[in-house]
Write a protein that binds this DNA or RNA. Structure first.
Length: 280
DNA sequence: AGCCAGGACAAGT
DNA sequence: ACTTGTCATGGC
């Protein structure tokens, strides 16, 4: 991939295995909207940003400098990862898996985003027993409320301190329902360091999961999502209702996450996307 | 109108 | 160790 600066944008050429539409509309992040099939706008890392893909192998990031791309967006987008190599490793882990092959085709433009740990965890606590449109709505309301309270002009994802000052009742007012004490407990444990981001990143998967599950309202599924999307755990494998369907219908429950190897999380995302795609 | 949603938890087998 | 009811809310 080659990168160059042009005006207030960064242009990237030689993009592979990436589609704005699939990556930002596959249920892994909740703060981006598709303006059209080739454009997504939203907020991440406290910055308003637009990703536009005029052709399949070109990406335009606005506003952005080369330095910002290198320090923020390259890793966020997973552009520092060789997807043709990763996909080969997936295929060699499952040489005769025609379902996975098919799913890798339909979702070939999905990349796992590297989101900020706290945002990922908090978002997926909100996601439990909830649907994607409403998850987005709640997160937006939360960000608007906190931006208002702090007098910020940009709706950054609120930090743990802001969540704590909202309090459980303040969270309830945002219609998060029974998740209010969960979000609050997560903020407290993150802030105190009882749950520590850096040490979790350095733990093996099962230990990391156990750490996150010390938070009230965080179970195996929410933990797996946070680990995959926010803690760079490529082997984390979230099992929600859709993936459960896939595993039952296609594999007859005769498969385990570890069968997909080191990049099980990406396989999961392909399968999740494919199964929901078929439904529509 | 009623079922369901990127679940977790407590209580009951 | 598995099942079941409950939780708050609104999208479809």
């Amino acid at each position: 991939m080659t990168v160059k600066e042009q005006g207030d944008s960064v242009l990237i050429y030689g993009v592979e295995y990436f589609k704005v539409s699939q990556t930002f509309d596959c249920g892994q992040c909740f703060r981006f909207e598709l303006k059209d099939e080739r454009t997504a706008s939203g907020i991440a890392f406290g910055k308003e940003i637009t990703f536009h893909q005029p052709t399949d192998d070109t990406l335009v990031i606005t506003p952005c400098s080369i330095e910002e791309y290198k320090s923020v967006w390259e890793h966020y987008l997973g552009f520092d990862c060789d997807y043709s190599d990763v996909r080969e490793q997936l295929l060699s882990a499952r040489p005769n898996d025609m379902i996975l092959r098919k799913a890798m085709e339909t979702g070939s433009g999905i990349r796992i985003l590297n989101q900020q740990p706290w945002e990922a965890l908090c978002s997926f606590i909100i996601s439990q027993n909830n649907n994607i449109p409403r998850i987005k709505k709640i997160i937006e309301a939360l960000c608007v409320k906190c931006a208002l309270d702090s007098g910020s002009d940009i709706k950054s994802f609120p930090g743990t301190a802001q969540i704590i000052s909202l309090g459980v009742e303040g969270l309830r007012d945002l219609r998060v329902g029974f998740r209010a004490p969960y979000i609050y407990d997560a903020a407290v444990k993150f802030r105190s360091g009882e749950v520590d981001v850096d040490s979790i990143k350095n733990m093996p998967l099962q230990d990391a999961e156990r750490e996150l599950c010390k938070i009230k309202g965080v179970g195996p599924k929410v933990a797996a999502c946070a680990l995959l999307f926010g803690f760079e755990k490529s082997e984390a494998f979230p099992i929600d209702v859709w993936v459960k369907r896939v595993m039952g219908e296609y594999y007859g429950d005769l498969i385990a996450p570890s069968d997909f190897g080191k990049y099980a999380g990406l396989a999961q995302q392909y399968l999740f996307y494919h199964r929901r795609y078929i439904e529509k």
